[in-house]
Amino acid sequence: MEPLLSVHGLSVSYGRFQALHEISLAVGRGEVVAIIGANGAGKSSLLNAIMGQAGRVSGAIRFAGRDIAALPTPAIVAAGIALVPEGRRLFPSLTVEENLAIGWDLGRRGGLRVAEIYAMFPVLLARRHQRAGQLSGGEQQMAALGRALLADPRLLLCDELSLGLAPRIVDRIYALMPEIRRRGITVVLVEQDISRSLAVCDRFYCLLEGRVVLSGRPAETDRDSIMQHYFGA
């Protein structure tokens, strides 16, 4: 069976800087796949390219049987891919509820409802009429995850969920992964926090300077080998 997402020979460059060099990877239906790598390895460029927001892109990106490399972002989201951007990127002057509504609005209009997001994150219910800019980092991350889930994605891309958050908060957010899987949503996790992402993923790809240098299943791969490839030693 064809994987849900397959990337083949993908290169991305911004001006003279080439962020990705002909990388290939595949994500199967229902999998949780982690993309790990140091700062500047090209992880965010990969996600941005899938979303149709990278610089110059060459290569193929196939999702659910169709080539999406040339599609505009709204069409990609409508096809069933949603992103939780690095740094949350909520719209600060909009209320929590408005931020969530935008997610619903852009997506496939099915699956989760706003009420279910509030059930997952009760703190958001209490703050739904506050401006997103006034939320704490953890609350913003919950709202950003909620916004992406409301688009009813088949594939959820998470960019650095744990960045800048207290471990306790990160635990609560990661505790939702089983629930997300149960709903049949495929997940690609980009993380610098290796142990966190290896703990929840089925498979991983390790990027170094824009290339895939290692891939496999966490249980079958030796930690030292991962660390060596991570730092390029």
Partner: peptide, 23 residues
Amino acid sequence: SRLGARIRAASDDVAAANLIGLP
């Protein structure tokens, strides 16, 4: 209105709006 929320969102952060699929 829905359009109003979209307008304010795009005005808040164009790059983020593009990234999550707002036209």
